[in-house]
């Protein structure tokens, strides 16, 4: 029995290790390519670590390209998207979780519909709609579009968070003298905030931290750093938050 248990434990750890290796190796390769000098890129392409590592790509990206501007813009867009998505989707998620009303199933259907077609299809019409408003080449336009793309999933996520919070809390707050909206703002939202700003907001932050600039792995690594850091921070809350009842008592 103990022998069997030991073997199982060892197998379990090995399996976990295999997963970690599988998850990390491509990231390691990204890093490896980014520190390989251009002259060695092809001759030492297959080595696990170049004979000579250099930061030349990083230096180039940071000084000679428009990377810093892009990086800044990307940060602004992602951060504002995250904040707006959190606010807007928590309101809708609350309505879906707490109210029984006609039209609720239509809203769910609408949200699901938005997940069903390739977004490419929207680009031309959207361009046509936004250009008279002068939003085509602006960060504001980008934020609006990203928010709209992220809101359906975020709303579902928020709804499941709210479903995990007992209704008694709002009832108590309303008896204590709060309106429903005050109860939502002061009691329900703070409770989900720890669990939700992280996943909902920062996930849109992470996924929209797009790096469609430069084919350079160095730029990729640089752009990845904040995304990965955020993700390492949030992933714990993500699982916790998805578990209904994580916020109970």
């Amino acid at each position: 029995m103990t022998r069997k248990r030991l073997i199982l434990t060892v197998l379990h750890r090995l399996a976990v290790l295999a997963y970690v290796a599988f998850a990390l190796f491509p990231l390691f390769w990204l890093l490896k390519v980014s520190v390989t000098p251009t002259s060695l890129l092809y001759t030492e392409g297959v080595r696990l670590w170049p004979s000579q590592a250099s930061l030349e790509h990083y230096k180039f990206v940071l000084t000679h390209s428009s990377f810093p501007t892009f990086f800044l813009n990307s940060t602004i867009v992602s951060a504002s998207t995250a904040v707006i998505v959190t606010i807007v989707s928590s309101l809708a998620g609350y309505a879906m979780s707490r109210f029984v009303f006609r039209g609720k199933y239509w809203i769910v259907g609408l949200l699901l519909l938005t997940q069903m077609f390739p977004l490419v299809m929207l680009i031309a019409p959207m361009f046509k709609m936004l250009s008279p408003l002068g939003l085509t080449n602006s960060l504001t336009g980008l934020v609006i579009v990203y928010v709209a793309f992220n809101v359906p999933f975020a709303t579902f996520l928020m709804q499941s968070f709210f479903d995990g919070i007992p209704k008694d809390l709002e009832d108590a707050a309303m008896i204590d003298g709060a309106t429903r909206f005050t109860a939502f703002r002061q009691i329900i939202l703070p409770l989900t905030l720890k669990a939700t700003t992280f996943p909902v907001g920062l996930l849109s932050f992470v996924s929209k931290f797009s790096v469609d600039f430069g084919q350079m792995m160095a730029a990729g690594v640089l752009a990845l750093i904040p995304a990965c850091l955020f993700f390492l921070l949030i992933q714990r809350y993500l699982v916790q938050g998805l578990t209904a009842g994580a916020v109970k008592g």
Binding site: D168, A178, P190
Partner: peptide, 20 residues
Amino acid sequence: VAPKDRDIAMVFQSYALYPH
């Protein structure tokens, strides 16, 4: 009259204490 304006207090089975 809305609950908040009835000037009553309630103790719930779940206690409904604000966890934060």
